[in-house]
C-alpha cells in the first residue's frame, strides 16, 4: 500500500499556492474585492487544514475554496451590471483572456468554464465548488462555452 502524501506545514502550502489563488480571485472579482477574498480563502483553508487526512490535490482543494469564496462575494452583492476591473499583468495570458471572456456569464457557468479550461480541474472537483454533481458541472461548463460561442460570433 502506498503511503498517503504527507501534508506540508501550512507555511509551505500557503507559499506554494498564494499567487495562483490571488490570480483566480482577481479574475473573478477584480483587484479590490480580491484582497478581502484572498484573506477569507486562506483563513478558511487554515481552519480546515488540521482536519485534512492526506496531502493530495491541495491545489485543487484551495482553488475550490477560493471559488466558493468568490461565489459568496458575488451573491452578497447586488448585481450592478458593471464588469469588475481586471488585472493586466498576468503572466499567463490564456487565463486572463478566459477571465475577460467569461465576464458576462452567470456565476456558475463562469466558475465551471474558468475552473475547467483555465485551471484544468476535473468535473468532480468543480462539482465540489458548485455544490452540485459532476454532471451538472459538465452541463454548466458546456452551456457556458456555448453561450460564449454565440456571444463572440454575434
Amino acid at each position: 500500500m502506498m503511503d498517503a502524501v504527507a501534508i506540508p506545514p501550512f507555511e509551505t502550502f500557503y507559499a506554494e499556492h498564494r499567487s495562483e489563488v490571488l490570480g483566480l480571485l482577481r479574475r473573478r472579482l477584480g483587484r479590490d474585492r480580491a484582497e478581502d477574498a484572498f484573506q477569507e480563502t486562506f483563513l478558511r483553508a487554515l481552519r480546515a487544514y488540521e482536519r485534512l487526512e492526506h496531502g493530495e490535490h491541495l491545489r485543487a482543494w484551495v482553488l475550490t475554496i477560493a471559488s466558493r469564496v468568490a461565489i459568496d462575494v458575488q451573491r452578497r452583492e447586488k448585481p450592478t451590471g458593471e464588469l469588475p476591473d481586471l488585472p493586466h499583468e498576468d503572466a499567463r495570458p490564456a487565463y486572463e483572456d478566459l477571465g475577460e471572456l467569461t465576464n458576462g456569464l452567470p456565476p456558475k457557468e463562469r466558475a465551471a468554464v474558468v475552473l475547467r479550461y483555465g485551471y484544468d480541474l476535473t468535473y468532480h472537483q468543480i462539482a465540489a465548488v458548485l455544490d452540485s454533481s459532476p454532471d451538472a458541472a459538465r452541463q454548466a461548463a458546456s452551456t457556458g462555452v456555448r453561450r460564449l460561442r454565440k456571444e463572440t460570433s454575434a
Binding site: 499567487s19 482577481r26 484573506q39 483563513l43 488585472p87 499583468e89
Partner: peptide, 23 residues
C-alpha cells in the same frame, strides 16, 4: 503574479489573531 507585501502581511496578522496557529 506575486502577492503584494501588504496583502501577505494582512493575512499573516489575521491568522495570528484567529488563534488557529499551532506555531
Amino acid at each position: 503574479m506575486s502577492v503584494p507585501v501588504d496583502l501577505d502581511r494582512r493575512f499573516r496578522d489575521a491568522a495570528a489573531r484567529s488563534g488557529m496557529l499551532d506555531a
